[in-house]
């Protein structure tokens, strides 16, 4: 398993380079324009000058190499310099600069990370924690009232998109009841208990909306997979051996049912970092999802490229994690 992991990690490098090239080509081909959002009162020749100052005049391979150099050489060097205080000759080293804000992309990402992790990360954990018991119990008591109700709620929950459910909870809890704020304050700093309560309050609504989606999805897969395994012969054997129901279900069946669920959970982690575009917009959380969609709409290629590349790294990494977990869950699976 170790050699497998190392081999896969090495393989990841050319894969990621290839992915970043493809992303770059698509972004370049896409017809969006960084000056599109400017008022029409700005004349075309000024727009042409703006594009030239962004470096859009250069041929595409030069721009790609420039980005590679900025992202893989300059940014790490700058980071090192910042952390250690060594002088690594920072003069003249260009960073990846966003076209919209004209500031380093990496700094903005670092600034957006906390709210995304707070909101999307929490809802992911909450979602998983609710989904697994629901899925297990629904399968164990298939067609019970609990199962039927669970099916109904999760399917409706999944069918209702966040652009609607978000507004619905705002109207109920922020406008009519006035319990929670409808706008997330990103400058809020948690220092003591009262400020933590404020943070909790402003997180509740977006977490509610997001967790519903995540719960629905994962609990469905959990239930289906458990159902598959509950009828297997080894379950009968285990019961025949006189093992308690808890052990049979929670140890034998659960472990064997986890493979699809692990896949879904692992695939979801990069999406946590990708933020939740619509939910972030509805509650004005302004995290990474908001950054990405804004950059795409503004034709801000350096930002989109950097963000999607980070997602690509996470995707490759967590798919590897899933593969390793398969081997642990089912020792018969071997890759070597």
């Amino acid at each position: 398993m170790l050699t497998f992991t190392i081999r896969r990690l090495l393989m990841a490098i050319p894969t990621l380079l290839f992915i970043s090239l493809i992303i770059f080509l698509i972004l370049d081909l896409a017809p969006s324009d960084p000056t599109a959002s400017l008022p029409l009162t700005i004349p075309p020749d000024v727009r042409a000058d703006i594009r030239a100052s962004l470096g859009l005049d250069e041929p595409i391979h030069i721009r790609f190499l420039l980005w590679l150099n900025q992202f893989f050489v300059n940014e790490p060097l700058n980071l090192l310099q910042h952390w250690t205080g060594w002088d690594l000759g920072g003069e003249g080293r260009t960073r990846v600069i966003s076209w919209q804000t004209r500031s380093p992309v990496v700094d903005i990402i670092a600034q957006r990370m906390p709210q995304t992790l707070w909101v999307v990360g929490t809802s992911y954990i909450v979602g998983i924690l609710i989904a697994l018991p629901i899925g297990i119990y629904s399968a164990y008591r298939q067609y019970s009232i609990f199962d039927q109700a669970g099916t109904f709620v999760t399917m409706v929950g999944f069918s209702v998109p966040p652009f609607f459910s978000g507004v619905l909870v705002i109207v109920i809890f922020a406008v009519n009841l006035g319990w929670f704020p409808s706008v997330y304050d990103t400058t809020h700093v948690v220092v003591d208990w009262p400020s933590f309560v404020i943070q909790l309050k402003q997180m509740i609504l977006p977490v509610m909306v997001l967790a519903l989606q995540i719960t629905s999805q994962i609990s469905r897969f959990m239930r289906a997979s458990m159902l598959d395994n509950l009828n297997q012969d080894y379950v009968r054997t285990a019961r025949a051996k006189g093992l308690t129901e808890t052990v049979v279900v929670m140890v034998h069946v659960l472990r064997n049912s986890m493979i699809p669920v692990v896949t879904v959970i692992a695939l979801g982690v990069p999406q946590v970092f990708g933020g939740a575009i619509i939910t972030e917009q509805v509650f004005k959380v302004n995290g990474l999802g908001h950054l990405l969609i804004g950059a795409i709409q503004g034709g801000d290629i350096p930002t989109v490229q950097t963000l999607t590349f980070i997602f690509a790294v996470l995707i490759v990494l967590f798919n590897l994690v899933a593969d390793v977990l398969y081997g642990i869950l089912d020792p018969r699976i071997r890759y070597d």
């Binding site: 081909l29 017809p31 969006s32 324009d33 000056t35 599109a36 959002s37 029409l40 709409q297 034709g299």
Partner: peptide, 16 residues
Amino acid sequence: IDASVFFGGDPASPDT
């Protein structure tokens, strides 16, 4: 047409 394309000046896009 999406505003970023419609008002964008990309000479390659047919939708400006």
